[in-house]
Write a protein that binds this DNA or RNA. Sequence first.
DNA 1: CGATTACTTGAATTCACTCAATGGCGGTGG
DNA 2: CCACCGCCATTGAGTGAATTCAAGTAATCG
Lengths: 271, 271
Amino acid sequence: MDVSPSYLSLLLIRKWESVFSLSEEETQAIRDLPVHTMVFESNQDIVRIGDCPLHSFLVLKGFASSYKLTTVGDRQIMALHIPGDIPDLQNLYLKRIDCSIVSITPCTIGFFQLEDLRHICERFPRISAAFWRETLVDASILREWVVNIGRRDAYTRIAHLLCEFLVRLQAVGLVENGTFHFPITQANLADATGISAVHMSRALKALRENGLIQTSRMHLAVPDLERLKEAGEFDPHYLHLEENAAAGFFSAAGSKATTVIDDCRANAFRG
Amino acid sequence: MDVSPSYLSLLLIRKWESVFSLSEEETQAIRDLPVHTMVFESNQDIVRIGDCPLHSFLVLKGFASSYKLTTVGDRQIMALHIPGDIPDLQNLYLKRIDCSIVSITPCTIGFFQLEDLRHICERFPRISAAFWRETLVDASILREWVVNIGRRDAYTRIAHLLCEFLVRLQAVGLVENGTFHFPITQANLADATGISAVHMSRALKALRENGLIQTSRMHLAVPDLERLKEAGEFDPHYLHLEENAAAGFFSAAGSKATTVIDDCRANAFRG
DNA sequence: CGATTACTTGAATTCACTCAATGGCGGTGG
DNA sequence: CCACCGCCATTGAGTGAATTCAAGTAATCG
């Protein structure tokens, strides 16, 4: 599949209009953002810790993760990125990249210049706020991860992570009947939850035996989301979805707001 | 001690000028931000999870922490806040507060209206960027916390936390000869590192016996920071300090940049 | 001075880890 | 088409780090 640059902007616009209704001029500015598409294999570093960033990128297809290595060589994943995410948006105003980002499945990535983005943010406060908000939601997810890893046992922790993943995928239309494409190894899940790969296998088995999940090679099914939420102590508030009322941040909002381009949604991510 | 509103703005200005050099107009806008000062006892909630925020606040004196409770009642602290921090800046563009913030020592707090802040950010892109950057650094710290809690053992984890605390305090001039005011209970430290209070006691003892730290009731001394850094696998890059070069984000920077008001620094926080 | 809170220490337990071996699946190449 | 290799997942056994429970000490405060 090929992905046109203009399609990229649709993704961004769609994502935000639930929160900020953008004017014609604003959406046009986003459309004009030059984007360069690239495809990655699994397990390829997209950006590396310590580098000085000139670009940022949007995930169009596939999953990626942010991670760091300890001096002992252990790996910790601190974020999972799904289509529609801008995993390294934080680099917009940070000089050095503080964590590496790697594709965990084959990925289609849209790169753009940070400088271009900074210019847009300077000119359009509302777009700036929309991007800013993205990074704030990411931080909120990180806070929940700290709680999850710090205070919940492996079983609960994994249930929580899977709930989060499902709900986020749902928000971009990648879940059907509680089932979604899930080509993520147990080793990756272990690195994301701070447990060992062996224990991950055992805990997943327990979740399976309790009927909370069904796993196949490439897919994961959640027959009863409510039960999984309960098992994972999952409360979706921290994801800050469905906050359309937040549009009120700019009460005297600009000119004519664009209507959503809805049909870009469903077909978008599915391969 | 009393803290004048104008003093608050000095704090902010000082903090940022190392990264963004602000124009007269911009510093004035910050000075004009109406601020309301308030004093809190230890262990008082300053903001509560679930509320809809209208204000944000700056820590002027004392320490605070962001936390959440699990359904079992366990507590996890996901951020420690020191003077100069704006702990809930994330609420600027999030509708609901996703974690509570509590004073862990007596605190002097400066409140301001989020609406006022949004207006400033709309008018001054560089101020917006400066605030934004604050939230990005907070997120970077959260990522490191995920690594710390997820992949390091208790001993290393605590050493790391103490290093971070020391380095951050150093940046606002609150450390003398490796010694700083540290009226934080072991229970709080335990909640911040995701271990039990009992184990915290044991691990601190080990750190003491290895000569890495000296504890007294209200103070903590680090005789050899390099050794503690090594023990904690601590690399300060993630704090994104000393990035003055980042001023280059706005190459065609505005009018005449203000000079630092240096003397506001040392006397500021000390009680 | 008694009450409360913070810290320490010991003992037993448990959750999760490491090490190690095995089984399954998918791709590759003879 | 089958044999082989590599990756991933599983399972068992033994270990270990951190937990809970419990008791006791030290410091602080009204």
